[in-house]
Design a protein around this nucleic acid. Structure first.
Lengths: 257, 257
DNA sequence: AAGTGGTCTAGACCACAGG
DNA sequence: CTGTGGTCTAGACCACTTC
């Protein structure tokens, strides 16, 4: 018999909690305090049934709770092994859809300047992570606010993998993000998005197009959309720093793994 | 009796799956296909027991699975209501610790230029979201690479709430992020971090300190660390664009809520 | 062969919603 | 009051691992 894992025999009173919650909490404390160390075996279901005078059902409820928290690993024929001393905490930034990445997408429109399917230049091939000469659908445009004065927000370059270059609905202006159109027309959804943010100087044509003085500060955001390990879309946006900054929030969570 | 939710009576063969998995999958399909709409009640446990010829235990395993996926909501005395037609998909960026935010923290050191506890100026009060005159611990420094030439990576300003201004271990150089020191010395952990990224021009003293030409492009990253709704720390880093860009990755997930 | 967890049955009592 | 889901008991058979 084991003293620390033993259940209180005088129960019922003072216990608004279901018994399996008590058991789960006790086990978590025993793991957190080092009573059971990582790699150790927890008592078997049968032992816990006897020690706590509970049925297997109740004991399993408690143990499966620890499983969900990622504290233990179970294997039929082996037993229950401690794999973590406390629930994994991490910081998460989450979004309901990729449109939240392009958060200004709602009140803005993209005026399309050009659309073409053509081979990638040397420089573009690095951006697109492809061989030089591979063909991509290239859309060039300027993003404006939908209402108010006609102040440009960004110079935009969108590259779409040749496989999806038959994309329809790319008129003179776009109100829908390209990745949403890809999802609607081809049923594909990015499984991963990489985003890179750089500072740069706005010079020459860029400064003129964005209507800022030569040599103003700017922000460049490059997003690479993957399905598994293949790139389906790359976007590049150049913003005047005076009219754009990028914000994000990270929340502390306690989910497992 | 309900035809679509009915279990196959000729079972057992061709079924390597546990029966509760079959039931869960069928229910998910019925919900996804609109057989049950959002707001509808699912059959009660008793009904499913009868229709599928299963015990309550097995039926509950299936139903609780849908619960975990966030598809249904249960209430004793009421029943089981459909609250979503499919598992919520979202994009998340996650980190094991906040040190991953300051990803360059490992191979770099912060040379401390000044340390003082003093009232916030008008401009700082906006940054710190506090009243002008509120006292904060202010640490000023330059971040360098640990090895290699002495090229500065960033000009850093760290503000710590007065409550924690007794912070120890801030010598001439720092190898540990301030928020890690706060955690170690005061046992506090940010529950939320906001991060803002701006482009800017490096001029005057900044350009000199970072050893870049006047009017170079730069990147400013401001992080605000919260415990619940109170700010405990604010950091500001000014980077030369030529030596720094900010990258992040978002993964598609299918977790509930 | 003995023991493990995975699955399942057939009951039971309870607190709580609704008519 | 009946019916709901929440909790729990006391059994059982199985596939698997270990000895």
């Amino acid at each position: 018999m084991n003293a620390t894992t033993q259940a209180p025999d005088t129960v019922s009173l003072e216990s608004p909690q279901p018994r399996h919650v008590d058991l789960a909490r006790t086990l978590m404390q025993d793991i957190g305090s080092g009573r059971y160390r990582i790699g150790d075996m927890l008592p078997t279901e049968a032992e816990l049934c006897a020690q706590w005078n509970l049925s297997r059902y109740a004991v399993r409820q408690a143990i499966l709770k620890l499983c969900e928290l990622g504290l233990i690993n179970r294997q039929a024929g082996i037993g229950t092994r401690v794999i973590a001393s406390r629930p994994h905490t991490r910081y998460v930034q989450s979004m309901d859809s990729l449109s939240d990445l392009v958060r200004y997408a709602h009140d803005t429109r993209l005026d399309v300047l050009s659309r073409s399917v053509r081979p990638a230049s040397e420089e573009e091939s690095r951006l697109l992570r492809c061989a030089p000469g591979a063909k991509w659908l290239h859309i060039e445009g300027i993003r404006h606010e939908v209402s108010g004065e006609d102040v440009p927000i960004a110079l935009v370059d969108v590259y779409v993998a040749e496989r999806y270059s038959g994309l329809k609905g790319v008129g003179k202006t776009l109100n829908t993000p390209i990745h949403t159109m890809l999802e609607q027309q081809f049923g594909i959804n990015a499984t991963r998005v990489e985003q890179q943010i750089q500072g740069l100087l706005l010079v020459g044509e860029q400064a003129v197009a964005l209507r800022v003085p030569e040599h103003s500060a700017g922000l460049r955001i490059v997003r690479t959309y993957y399905v598994q390990d293949t790139v389906i879309e790359v976007t590049s946006g150049v913003h005047p720093a005076s009219r754009f900054s990028y914000s994000m929030t990270f929340q502390l969570t306690h989910t497992p793994s």
